[in-house]
Design a protein around this nucleic acid. Structure first.
Length: 522
RNA sequence: GUCCGGUUCGUCUAGGGGUUAGGACACCGCCCUUUCACGGCGGCAACACGGGUUCAAAUCCCGUACCGGAUACCA
């Protein structure tokens, strides 16, 4: 057990963003790797924008990812009194001053742009120390405050010198005091501001390492100023490169919608372990040619040294259902689905089938073996958990749709199949009929049967003979049957499909004219 | 504008003085096969640019360009 204490400190102004999720991951990994503590602090000091809904959404996202904090969650707004006290102390010590400048009216334009415009207009000549109240005498300041005049409290940044720190990712960082304005600590309505709150809380929570987005780099200099004024040694800082949109611009909810929200991935059938794995590789590398890491392996391998300095692009194509999110994330998820131990996968499949009303309790009981074999068979070509209830629907229900393209390509193109397939059903019935009363899997145990069992090898023999009789190609029969049996054009070997679907359902589906009657529309 | 940071295949990245610049995803081709989004094999594809330093630069230094971040009584 080390004394490392890190925190993930999201502000509840939206759902858990993919970038925040990665920050949480890196903090979590660092804590586990060092044997330290991973803490969670909700930075809800912006009363106007913070919502409980956001807090819940963030908590949900973290829960899904599996990052439970080691201590009670800290809500920053609960500490406002302490923040105010710290500001007052700095005022007492002469490290801060009252600014009686009337609060500027918020611009009606986009705040961010307005700030940027103003900054541009001021250029590089702006004097950060030109506040007329900076050197107001204590007596006058006290008097004006006593008279009820509103004031903000600003940090009195020293005239000469510079802040510096050793960033664990970006290396040595320096910033001249002249570049930093006398930042506001306390608003004129008494509300503590971000930088003050963060410093106070990090001190109180005894945070040793601050691991956060690179967009906080300049805040860090401001915060160091506060640490210095407070006479406290700052923690170690490690800034993370940012995750950008495909055009290398900012990844935002407004512009990019749900692709950036963690809950989207949960709801889209992603496995948390796979998404974590994907996230870990965005901006970090163990320096080896490996892609798949379990959580334990990530914890083992993780180090601040492996974090990059350049931003990463989260790649996706809006409007393309096949590439709605990053290719690698989809691949990673598929990889997990097809390779993880079946026993670990099934607990994820069950709720999915349940939600689609496809679950039957027998799958854990009498039909357990069949169910496991089926899942194992169909997972090979699946990308998400959703596929089990959509593409895999025909394995669990009679009520499934026929893909129009599959019907067109595999059935209607060969009109003979309209009679051939029902004929094949009859052939199956003749060859395997005695087995009808029992599931295919149990037939092997019954040596009394004179008929052949409905298993791959036997099915192959029958279908091949049937194909020859009809003078057609095996593929025509197989693909036609595939469409009728599963509703789709892709899937595992048809012989496995026949066996898995079972004789009874196979006969019924081969004889059904439903697909044939379906119109060409979609 | 100013300050800060970054730049290796389309994307994620390895490599940090001498490599045929490696891997993964995506894409393309071939194979397997009854289809396929599984699998196998292969291919396409990158050191932003210009100067230095050096016997030797993707790697070190400087500059340029481009990209990003910050710049608030937001977080």
């Amino acid at each position: 057990m080390s004394d490392v204490r890190v925190r993930f400190a999201p502000s509840p102004t939206g759902y858990l963003h993919i970038g925040s999720a990665r920050t949480a991951l890196f903090n979590y990994l660092y804590a586990r790797h060092t044997g330290g503590k991973f803490l969670l602090r909700i930075e809800d000091t912006d009363l106007a924008r913070s919502t409980e809904e956001s807090t819940n959404s963030i908590l949900e996202g973290l829960k899904w990812l599996g990052f439970a904090p080691d201590e009670e969650i800290v809500f920053q707004s609960n500490n406002a009194d302490k923040h105010r006290a710290a500001a007052m102390k700095l005022l007492e010590d002469g490290k801060a001053y009252r600014d009686f400048t009337p609060k500027a009216e918020p611009s009606d334009a986009n705040v961010k742009d307005a700030i940027k415009e103003r900054a541009r207009a001021q250029g590089g000549d702006k004097n950060m120390r030109d506040n007329e109240y900076r050197d107001l005498s204590k007596d006058e300041s006290d008097a004006r405050a006593a008279s009820g005049e509103p004031f903000a409290i600003r940090l009195k940044v020293p005239d000469a010198g510079k802040t510096s720190f050793e960033d664990q990712v970006y290396g040595p960082q320096e910033r001249d005091y002249a570049e930093t304005e006398d930042l506001v600590l306390l608003r004129s309505d008494g509300h503590p501001l971000y930088n003050l709150a963060v410093v106070c809380d990090d001190i109180e929570m005894q945070i040793t390492h601050v691991i956060r987005g690179q967009d906080h780099l300049t805040n860090t200099h401001k915060q160091i100023l506060i640490y210095e004024a407070l006479g406290v040694t700052p923690p170690t800082f490690a800034h993370l490169p940012l995750i950008m949109a495909p055009n290398k611009g900012k990844l935002s909810k407004r512009k990019h919608g749900e692709v950036v929200s963690m809950t989207t991935y949960r709801d889209a059938g992603f496995i948390a372990a796979a998404f974590r794995n994907f996230l870990a590789l965005l901006g970090w590398s163990a320096g080896e040619e490996r892609e798949i890491y379990s959580l334990d392996e990530l914890v083992e391998e993780f180090s601040l040294d492996g974090i990059h300095r350049s931003n990463a692009v989260f790649n996706f194509t809006e409007g393309d259902p096949r590439k709605w999110t990053d290719d690698k994330a989809i691949w990673m998820n598929a990889e997990y689905i097809r390779t993880m131990p079946l026993g670990e996968l099934i607990p994820f499949v069950k709720p999915e089938l349940n939600a689609a009303k496809l679950w039957r309790d027998e799958y854990e009981d009498d039909d357990k073996e069949w169910f496991e074999n089926t899942i194992n068979l169909i997972r090979q070509r699946f990308f998400t958990l959703k596929d089990f209830s959509s593409q895999g629907r025909a394995y669990f229900s009679e009520d499934f749709d026929f893909d129009a393209a599959a019907v067109e390509k595999n059935l209607k193109k060969f009109p003979d199949l309209k009679t051939w397939l029902p004929e094949l059903a009859t052939r199956f019935e003749v060859e395997f009929g005695d087995a009808l009363q029992k599931p295919a899997r149990e037939q092997g145990r019954n040596t009394q049967h004179s008929n052949k069992t409905f298993t791959e090898e036997n099915i192959e023999t029958v279908v091949k003979a049937f194909t020859e009789e009809k003078g057609t190609k095996l593929g025509v029969i197989m693909n036609g049957a595939r469409t009728l049996l599963t509703g789709v054009a892709v899937g595992p070997s048809m012989l496995s499909v026949f066996e898995t679907i079972g004789l009874e359902r196979t006969l019924m589906r081969l004889r059904s004219q439903m697909a044939w009657n379906q119109s060409n529309e979609t």
